[in-house]
């Protein structure tokens, strides 16, 4: 009789252990996925830092009257690069500034038909569009991964294991700059004359 009770207890312990190990491994897997997703964002943001000097150089000759717009892009890029080792929250704000400065530049470009005929610029524009989209999609994937991970940490019963083994919630990569949320306004006015 005692043997049977002992057996049942051992079985329960074994099952519990298996559940704990599976949950723990699941959490580790999800944390790694958010880390990978974060690395993806990082790659694309760095790509954007590299593209901007090229873009400004190509565009400069065509748009002497847009010095302010170009400077805003360069400054936003340098600012974003200076916080490149910070956490998602801090970086998101700086990157949001850069995105909106770039969006303004691309709106202004519409007023320069010569520039739009430049092969070099067209190639850069495609690269920039691709990079912007990749930043957007990697952010989308990262935030979805973080949401799942954070839910798992908060929800019962995985929250017990997460608490015991010290899993912390991850930070979302959310663009807080208000300009970024609005779609860029296209201006149909004539190009500014000096």
């Amino acid at each position: 009789m005692a043997g049977i009770i002992l057996g049942v207890i051992v079985a329960i312990i074994v099952i519990l252990l298996i559940i704990i190990i599976a949950t723990y491994n699941g959490l580790v897997g999800m944390r790694n996925q958010t880390k990978n997703a974060w690395a993806q964002i990082d790659v694309q943001l760095k790509r954007r830092y590299d593209l901007i000097p090229n873009l400004v150089e190509t565009v400069k000759g065509y748009m002497q009257h847009e010095r302010g717009t170009l400077e805003a892009v360069t400054n936003a890029r340098n600012l974003a690069q200076s916080v490149a080792s910070a956490g998602p929250g801090e970086r998101a704000a700086a990157e949001g500034q850069l995105s909106s400065a770039l969006a303004r530049l691309l709106v202004v470009v519409e007023n320069y038909p010569n520039l739009k005929a430049n092969q070099n610029f067209l190639a850069l524009q495609e690269e920039l569009t691709g990079t912007e989209n990749k930043i957007g999609f990697s952010r989308q994937f990262y935030n979805d991964s973080v949401l799942r991970f954070n839910n798992k940490i908060e929800m019962f019963p995985s929250n017990i294991i997460a608490g015991m083994t010290g899993f912390k919630q991850s930070e979302f990569f959310e663009v807080k700059a208000p300009e970024e949320r609005e779609a860029p306004k296209v201006s149909f006015s004539a190009p500014p004359k000096s």
């Binding site: 694309q44 495609e126 690269e127 999609f137 994937f141």
Partner: peptide, 16 residues
């Protein structure tokens, strides 16, 4: 074909 390649890479990223 940069455009096609970029679009494929975008979707590779979006899908994880």
């Amino acid at each position: 074909h940069p455009r096609l390649y970029n679009v494929v890479e975008e979707m590779k990223i979006a899908s994880g």
